[in-house]
Design a protein around this nucleic acid. Sequence first.
DNA 1: CTGTTATTTACATAACAAGATATATAACAT
DNA 2: ATGTTATATATCTTGTTATGTAAATAACAG
Lengths: 110, 110
Amino acid sequence: MPNYDDHIDNIFRTLADPTRRAVVDRLCEGPATVAELATPFQMALPSFLQHLSILEKGNIITSKKVGRVRTCYLRPDAFKMIEEWLSDRRTLWEKRLDALENYLDNQQLS
Amino acid sequence: MPNYDDHIDNIFRTLADPTRRAVVDRLCEGPATVAELATPFQMALPSFLQHLSILEKGNIITSKKVGRVRTCYLRPDAFKMIEEWLSDRRTLWEKRLDALENYLDNQQLS
DNA sequence: CTGTTATTTACATAACAAGATATATAACAT
DNA sequence: ATGTTATATATCTTGTTATGTAAATAACAG
């Protein structure tokens, strides 16, 4: 089973590609089939499918196949982990700034 | 000059590595020298320096060399771009959910 | 000046990622 | 049953990333 760190690795790596981010953008507007998603791109379909599979493994999107058509959805919790990661760091960082400020205030007093 | 997309690519790629994220974590606590940052890792120093250079090119950290010692800092705006990217998508996504809700409400009425 | 410390540079290599083409499957239309 | 459409899988090439070792620089200590 993949640990927390691997998971975040995956998410960051998944989003570190313009094609995949563009797919995310498109899916923000609502679900779309593979073909619909692929049309804006020059790239060959199999290459594009790679990106979709990476997005799905990164838990950014889901998909369901009905007949021969696969429809893709942005996962409602797509950005949750990454937002948590950011807010954790922001908290640490701000705690540190506060500490620094206190320290400086105390310096002034003495 | 690098465009917006390249920039975000860089940031995501930069953070898609456990070593580099660990450095970020450490620097949230305050500045540190190269040697201090490197000690927790098994990796050879030149390998580690690569990571620092990637973090610096990704505008996540800055550094200043005094004498032979380089001190690294987390940039105050380290996560700004990525937070903006996230909040933009969240906005799009929520706008869409609102539209969907309206649509469903209207369906009920008719 | 000489040795030591703190990086830095210069390669080398192995693993991985992005793209392509060619082929396969599987559902639908007739 | 057969052709067409919508994906899927397999395999290959090429570029990039992560790591390493060896040697270089540059400041400081004595």
